[in-house]
Write a protein that binds this DNA or RNA. Structure first.
Length: 750
RNA sequence: GGGCGGUUAGCUCAGCGGUAGAGCACUGCAUUCACAUUGCAGGGGUCACAGGUUCAAAUCCUGUACCGCCCACCA
């Protein structure tokens, strides 16, 4: 089939996007300090958004694209409304994630981090970061993000890191950070503690064993467990005090099989009489609930699993992994005829959120942040309405979590991150170093916390050891939780002048999975250090899923790469497609058809503007200002109608953007532009053009409506609108056909 | 165990008290007139199910079913 030669041709995003982004960068307008003072006077209001700092390990995925598109819409819209708009970007050092990535790289050469040693290994991560850490920000540029790149921060920048350490010192001085030996969630692969929020659960088919523990005075008590191997660390058997079945067993002594250790039978209200046999083996060092029970009853903590997740000090199967040990224990118990039964049982196992390894609760010395008071301020911020969460449903999980939150383990035993500003007396070392691979020996003594520990807390190394007066103090080997660091993101690392300009920000846009992990912690940190909530609004957007409703995952190959979409359809079309689907706050089942619709729409815009350009009259157009907008002299009914509709759609767009309803806003503008303007008005204008008396008003109306439409669409589709605006097609009538004194659309008055 | 969403055209979703909408897909017609990445016309839905409130319900209330997500120390 032969196609007729076309004069103008279709819009090609590739040839324009790079050029336009270059123009924006050259203008400097992404930096609010460089906006033209004529348009943005000193007293102009500010509008600030902070970019949730992507991990340096990441590459742009659909979630980032959605997040960034929303933020860019808000920033561009407010910039056009006359606000000194700022969007502050940066990246997160992503402690465990980044360390794991580099460890994996090294493993290919058969090198472990311990082979390199701490300093060299951290050097490797820095090298990696130099090479790849900025990739994701460059990818955001492809999307059209109007971030103030001159203010890009990194959470491991010297200034930022120092402020993170200072925050630790501040909390410690206030008594809000303390050191304690507790049972914590431990990842044996990453060899670090994790906070309660850094755990993922997976259902696993296992068995529930009923084991017989003989009583010293004869008889037996049957306990139910999913992990028989942990019986080697048992310190008691517990029952509910109200459980009639065990009334006369409480206080008696059981004899732990295999080790033949005597353990008490105790009563604790935490035991559910309806589960299993109603009697539970208590393993204080390897179960969070058991640890609580143990501390209530002063039971000993037998640490039988080490930092590598291997059995130790158990007398049986030392050095083996727990599942291997389980077989041995079961065999021995079977031989002793102490297994009552074993039934199939589905239960949740806890996994490391970074590497997916099975976690082992172990007893460990860690640093904890007291959450009580801080949680209260974070609750108050939302309850008082000082920080508003959109949509409102997300307030409940936020408040519920804060209402029951336990102290936050903020120390990590990895190497990549801000070192704890804690200095130990070298003569009285109590810190267990994590700088060497654990030998498998005892990692900490039981109930050691009574010893007075000799450490000083300060950002700088103390000149003189306050304890022995003459040692070279050693800094704690631990680093801070990445989320402790990112909790300070709204202000840390900014110059004092910038803090005044940009704190607090207007809106935080993020995904729901980090409401507690990040948002709540930013809110109380903001209150603690800046005495003010860090943002007025929190917008929780949906998650982009596959068309089948499954999570997008790189490893499963279900992910969609926004960059390849941009390559195929253009950034404007991708932004359009994302926002088209982002109505309400529902999760999005990704449909590429929406991006195709965006590409078609871009083409429509392009061609409509060519038509408008071709129909401009030589002389400047006369327009009258009416209360409801502009109206050309001698306007026809059709002219008036489209102008009236334009006024309406503009107001609706303002309302929708204000309400953070971007999908609605876009659909409405789309419908107006395509159907009202192109299908109806442009067709009508063709007739008007033939009548000399109606020609001028048609030309003026075409130009005016196109011009206004470009402005409305610019936050959504910045590249093509900027490109068209730079041509004569969209010259505002009052500016004359050649478009004198044109500004860039990005700073044009909305 | 608790909480939060969802269930509307073949697909992805809007609508959230007044006689069903969009994009894509589908059917028919129309190409020297900005655009075939088009225009015009059209087909297609007992709005998950069952009760209730109302003059009126996809829309409000109650319950059920299925799907999804989050939280939780049932060992």
């Amino acid at each position: 089939m032969e196609k007729p030669e076309k004069v103008g041709g279709a819009y090609d995003p590739k040839t324009t996007e790079e050029k336009i982004y270059g123009l924006w960068l050259k203008s400097g307008y992404f930096n609010p300090d460089k906006l033209p003072p004529k348009i943005y006077p000193k007293k102009a209001k500010r509008y600030t958004v902070i970019l949730p700092p992507p991990n340096i390990t990441g590459s742009l995925h659909m979630g980032h694209a959605l997040n960034a598109t929303i933020e860019d819409i808000l920033v561009r819209y407010h910039r056009m409304r006359g606000y000194k708009a700022a969007w502050l970007p940066g990246t997160d050092h992503a402690g465990i994630a980044a360390q794991n990535v580099v460890e994996k790289e090294l493993r290919k050469q058969n090198i472990s981090r311990f082979d390199l040693g701490r300093e060299k290994f951290v050097g490797e991560i820095w090298k990696w970061r130099e090479k790849y850490g900025g990739v994701i920000l460059d990818q955001l540029k492809k999307l059209g993000a109007s971030c103030d790149w001159s203010r890009a921060r990194f959470t491991m920048d010297e200034k930022y890191a120092r402020e993170v350490q200072a925050a630790f010192v501040h909390y410690h001085r206030k008594g809000l950070i303390y050191r304690g030996e507790r049972v914590v969630n431990w990842c044996p692969r990453c060899r670090t503690s994790l906070s309660d929020l850094e755990i993922e659960y997976r259902e696993e088919k296992g068995k529930l064993w009923r084991l017989k523990y003989p009583l010293k005075d004869g008889g037996e008590i049957i306990v139910a467990t999913t992990r028989p191997e942990t019986m080697l660390g048992d310190a008691a058997v517990a029952v509910n005090p109200k459980d009639a079945r065990y009334k006369n067993v409480i206080g008696k002594t059981a004899v732990l099989p295999i080790q033949n250790r005597e353990i008490p039978v105790i009563a604790d209200a935490a035991i559910d009489a309806d589960f299993g046999t109603g009697a539970v083996k208590v393993t204080p060092a390897h179960d969070l609930l058991d640890a609580e029970i143990a501390s209530r009853h002063s039971l000993p903590f037998h640490q039988i699993i080490d930092e590598r997740g291997r059995m130790q000090n158990a007398g049986v199967c030392d050095g083996l992994k727990p599942p291997e040990c389980r077989e041995i224990v079961l065999k021995k118990l079977g031989d002793l005829n102490l297994i009552e039964s074993a039934e199939d049982y589905v239960h949740n196992v806890s996994l490391c959120y970074r590497c997916g390894s099975r976690l082992e609760p172990i007893l460990s010395k860690q640093w904890f942040s007291k959450m009580g008071g801080l949680a209260k301020t974070a609750i108050g911020a939302v309850k008082s309405g000082k920080t508003k969460i959109y949509p409102k449903n997300f307030e409940k999980p936020y408040l519920d979590w804060l209402g029951n939150v336990k102290d936050w383990c903020v120390s990590r035993q990895i190497w990549w991150g801000q070192r704890l500003p804690v200095w130990f007396c070298a003569q009285n070392q109590t810190e267990i170093s994590n700088d060497h691979p654990p030998a498998g020996g005892p990692i900490s003594k039981q109930n050691e916390n009574s010893t007075a520990e000799k450490f000083a807390v300060s950002v700088k190394k103390p000149r003189q050891c306050p304890f022995c007066k003459n040692c070279d103090m050693e800094q704690s080997a631990d680093v801070l939780d990445t989320w402790f660091s990112s909790a300070l993101w709204p202000f840390a690392g900014l110059s004092p002048a910038d803090v005044r300009k940009f704190y607090p920000s207007d809106v935080l846009v993020t995904a729901r999975d980090i409401i507690n992990l990040w948002v709540a912690r930013m809110i109380f940190s903001g209150r603690e250090f800046m005495d003010k909530e860090p943002f007025k609004k929190v917008l929780i957007h949906g998650t982009i899923l596959t068309k089948e409703g499954k999570r997008m995952s790189k490893s499963l190959g279900t992910g969609i790469d926004p960059l390849s979409l941009i390559d195929s359809y253009g950034a404007d079309a991708v932004r359009f497609g994302i926002i088209w689907q982002a109505t309400g706050n529902q999760d999005i089942r990704w449909d590429e058809a929406a991006v195709i619709a965006g590409k078609k729409f871009a083409n429509k815009l392009w061609n409509a503007s060519r038509f408008v350009a071709a129909n401009q009259t030589a002389s400047p157009q006369k327009v009258e200002k009416k209360s409801d907008g502009f109206r050309p002299r001698g306007a026809t009914a059709a002219d008036k109608k489209i102008l009236k509709e334009l006024t309406r759609v503009k107001k609706t767009a303002e309302k929708n953007i204000g309400a953070l309803e971007f999908g609605k806003a876009l659909r409405d503008i789309y419908d107006f532009f395509w159907h009202s303007f192109c299908d109806r008005y442009i067709e009508e204008s063709k007739k008007q053009m033939e009548d000399p008396a109606k020609r001028e008003s048609a030309a003026a109306t075409l130009s005016f409506v196109l011009n206004e439409s470009l402005k409305m669409l610019h936050p959504f589709m910045p590249f093509i609108t900027e490109e068209i605006y730079g041509t004569a097609a969209a010259a505002p009538p009052e500016a004359g056909p050649a478009g004198n004194e044109r500004r860039m659309l990005m700073i044009e008055k909305w």
